[in-house]
Measured scan of single mutants.
Amino acid sequence: GSKLPPGWEKRMSRSSGRVYYFNHITNASQWERPSG
């Protein structure tokens, strides 16, 4: 298991139950796992 880039964390969408990734530094969110 590799770590996520700085700022990123795994989140669960309440509406759909899907996992997404959220960056608390930039407030960005995306479905794809961030690389870096």
Rank of each mutant, 00 (worst) to 15 (best):
K10L: 13
T26V: 03
P34C: 06
L4F: 03
P6T: 08
N23P: 00
L4Y: 04
S35H: 09
E9M: 06
L4W: 03
W31S: 08
A28G: 06
R33P: 14
R11D: 01
S15W: 07
S15V: 14
R14M: 11
Y21A: 00
S13V: 11
T26D: 04
G17E: 06
I25F: 11
K3H: 12
V19I: 14
H24V: 15
T26M: 05
H24D: 06
S15I: 14
G7N: 06
E9V: 12
R11L: 07
M12Q: 10
F22N: 01
E32L: 06
S29V: 15
S16Q: 09
Q30P: 00
G17T: 03
I25T: 07
N27I: 04
S15M: 08
S16F: 06
A28R: 13
Y21S: 00
W31P: 05
V19R: 03
S15A: 12
Q30Y: 05
N27A: 08
N27L: 14
A28D: 07
E9F: 05
S2V: 11
P5E: 05
K3G: 14
R11K: 10
Y20P: 02
L4E: 04
S16G: 09
Q30G: 03
K3Y: 13
P34I: 01
R18Q: 09
S15T: 13
S29I: 15
T26Q: 04
L4P: 15
V19C: 15
P34H: 00
R33K: 10
R18E: 11
T26W: 04
W8K: 00
F22K: 04
I25L: 10
Y21F: 06
G36T: 11
G1D: 15
L4H: 01
V19K: 03
L4G: 03
R18I: 09
F22M: 02
M12H: 11
R18Y: 07
G1Y: 03
Y20G: 01
N23H: 04
G36L: 12
S15G: 10
W31I: 08
R11F: 04
Y21G: 00
Y21N: 00
S16I: 07
H24M: 12
G36A: 13
P5Y: 02
G36C: 11
M12N: 08
T26K: 03
K10T: 10
A28L: 14
S15K: 14
S16D: 12
E32P: 07
N27T: 06
R11M: 07
V19E: 13
R18S: 04
I25H: 11
R14V: 12
S29E: 07
E32S: 06
E9Y: 04
E32I: 05
N23S: 04
K3T: 14
W8L: 00
K10V: 15
G1R: 10
R14E: 12
W8I: 00
S29L: 13
R14W: 05
K3A: 14
F22P: 05
R18A: 09
A28M: 15
R11N: 03
M12G: 03
R33T: 09
H24L: 13
Y20E: 06
G7Y: 06
N27D: 04
N27V: 04
F22G: 01
K10H: 05
F22I: 06
G1E: 15
S29A: 14
E32V: 06
S35N: 12
Y20W: 06
G36F: 13
K10Q: 14
R33E: 13
S29D: 02
S2Q: 12
K10C: 14
Q30A: 04
G17Q: 07
P6H: 10
K3D: 15
P5R: 02
K10G: 05
W8Y: 01
T26G: 01
W31Y: 11
I25E: 10
S2T: 13
Y21W: 07
S13L: 12
S16V: 07
S35K: 09
G17K: 09
Q30S: 07
G36V: 13
F22S: 01
M12I: 15
R11I: 07
S2Y: 13
G1I: 11
Y21Q: 00
G17H: 08
N27G: 15
W8R: 00
F22Y: 15
S2P: 13
S15E: 11
R14H: 11
P5S: 03
F22T: 03
K3V: 13
P5L: 04
S13K: 04
N27S: 09
R18N: 07
R14T: 13
V19T: 10
A28P: 01
G36Q: 11
Y20K: 01
S29W: 15
A28T: 15
K10S: 09
P6N: 08
V19Q: 08
S2D: 15
P6W: 11
P6K: 07
G7E: 04
K10Y: 06
W31D: 08
S13W: 06
G1V: 11
L4V: 04
Y21L: 00
N23A: 01
R18M: 08
G17R: 06
P6F: 11
T26S: 07
E9L: 06
A28V: 15
R14D: 10
N27Q: 12
H24I: 15
G1H: 11
V19A: 08
S29H: 13
P34S: 01
E32W: 09
I25S: 06
Q30D: 02
P6Q: 08
P34T: 00
S13E: 14
Y20H: 04
W8S: 00
S35A: 11
P5H: 03
M12D: 05
M12E: 09
G7T: 02
V19W: 12
E32R: 05
G36H: 11
G7A: 04
H24S: 14
P34Q: 01
L4Q: 02
K10I: 15
Q30E: 03
W8E: 00
S16E: 08
Y20F: 08
S15D: 11
N23C: 08
G7F: 07
S35Q: 11
S16T: 14
N27M: 12
S35T: 14
R11C: 15
Y20N: 01
W8T: 01
M12S: 07
N27P: 00
S2H: 13
S35P: 12
P34F: 01
G1L: 09
Y20Q: 02
Y20D: 05
R14I: 12
N23I: 03
E9I: 10
R14Y: 08
G7S: 03
S13T: 10
S13D: 15
R14P: 14
P34R: 00
N23M: 01
W8D: 00
I25Y: 11
M12F: 15
Q30T: 03
Q30V: 03
F22R: 02
N23G: 00
S15R: 14
R14K: 14
H24G: 07
K10M: 15
P5G: 05
S29Y: 14
Y21M: 00
L4T: 02
P5W: 04
N23W: 01
H24P: 10
R33Y: 14
Q30H: 04
W31M: 08
P6V: 09
K10D: 01
A28S: 11
A28E: 15
H24N: 13
S35Y: 11
N23Q: 02
W8H: 00
R18K: 12
N23R: 00
P34W: 03
W8N: 00
P6D: 10
R33A: 11
G17N: 10
T26E: 04
S2E: 15
T26N: 05
E9G: 06
M12Y: 15
K10W: 05
Y20M: 01
W31K: 08
R11E: 02
E9A: 05
I25V: 10
R11S: 03
I25P: 02
F22E: 05
E32T: 08
V19Y: 13
G7L: 02
S35L: 13
